[in-house]
Design a binder for these strands. Structure first.
Lengths: 186, 186
DNA sequence: GAGAAACCGGACCGCCCGGTCAACTTCGTG
DNA sequence: CACGAAGTTGACCGGGCGGTCCGGTTTCTC
């Protein structure tokens, strides 16, 4: 890859992430190109279709989460490690909310593979926390995978929220995961 | 209002709700009109703009929730009443997920008024539950207002989920609201 | 430094969207 | 039953979208 092409690719991915975060999936390629300071045709040279562009962004983000999960697996306190993982995920999402992108094109083959890797990382974290009695025995990795998205989603619904409102709801949800006072699940 | 106009209005609202639930906010007026069995022009006779159509649908749904809240306020067990309210809200959303509509045009004046009424109804429910020690003391009506949307949102992320998966996450979240084993909130 | 290959840009295409309008149909009243 | 008002319709408009394409430019290699 030529040097200018590599530079433009970086600019493009960053601009696209910003634009998607601001305007949702409806952000137009033309606006993304303008923001990156490149022509519209260049966008389609790097990514044949809008879907491919989205996939590239999402893949990067999931990869970062997998890396955090792998790192946290060696932490001392199993319960604290799980909470820390959910915090990292929420912080990533708080910075730029791109969750709707994850859901938009879940047919993409590479994305399915990456999702599986993420789920495996979370499973390991949860299994260890469960073994240490840090979370209730009936909670699964899938539960955490799903619930880790909820605090931001909830906090985003209030218009002029303080930027760390999600911490409040992460705390409530994590309390629901704890073994103390847990009621049986349906 | 003439009889045929009233009939078409009902057909239109039902068709629009279905179409939005299936295709998101991007559902086209033309498709909605076709589904309702009426012409496109007729849609704009009843609602001057797409936004007005959305608002009419959302208003109906919130009103139903407010009614449920008022009814439950006289129930025997305060804690069970709150859980029941959250269950009703989740069931409504499970049938047709239109939450994105609530968020889409929150500038609408009537919608703001209706949101306030809903929040008041929830506040009353939560205050009573708190007084009975059924929920932790630091939980507010706003918390419940925000969290009641989470179980469905979470359950929808898994593609081939059983239709009542949300009950699992409602149970977990409600456990997080209980006073037993609650950790202090940030 | 020169030629080839890779890259860039923006005019262009076909499509679909929300919204308008004027001709036509239906309703309900006296 | 007749007539005006209310309602309906689908062709039509301007605009924005994703994606294409080719003439001109930049970068790399020898």
């Amino acid at each position: 890859m030529r040097a200018d092409a590599a530079r433009n690719r970086r600019l493009l991915l960053a601009a696209a992430a910003d634009e998607f975060a601001e305007h949702g999936l409806g952000a137009s390629i033309a606006d993304i190109a303008k923001r990156a300071g490149i022509g519209k045709g260049t966008v389609f040279r790097h990514f044949a279709t809008k879907e491919d562009l989205v996939a590239a962004i999402v893949l990067d983000r999931i990869e970062a989460l997998v890396a955090a999960g792998d790192r946290l697996r060696q932490a001392g306190d199993a319960g604290a490690a799980l909470l820390e993982f959910m915090t990292v995920a929420a912080e990533q999402r708080q910075q730029r909310d791109l969750t709707f992108l994850h859901a938009a094109f879940d047919g993409h083959p590479e994305m399915a593979r990456m999702h599986a890797r993420l789920l495996a990382a979370i499973d390991a974290l949860v299994a260890r926390a469960r073994a240490h009695g840090a979370v209730r025995p009936d909670v699964t990795g899938t539960d955490v995978f799903l619930l880790m998205c909820a605090p931001n989603h909830v906090a985003e619904m209030v218009p002029d929220a303080p930027p760390d409102l999600w911490r409040r709801y992460l705390a409530i949800i994590f309390d629901g995961l704890r073994p103390e006072g847990a009621h049986p699940l349906p």
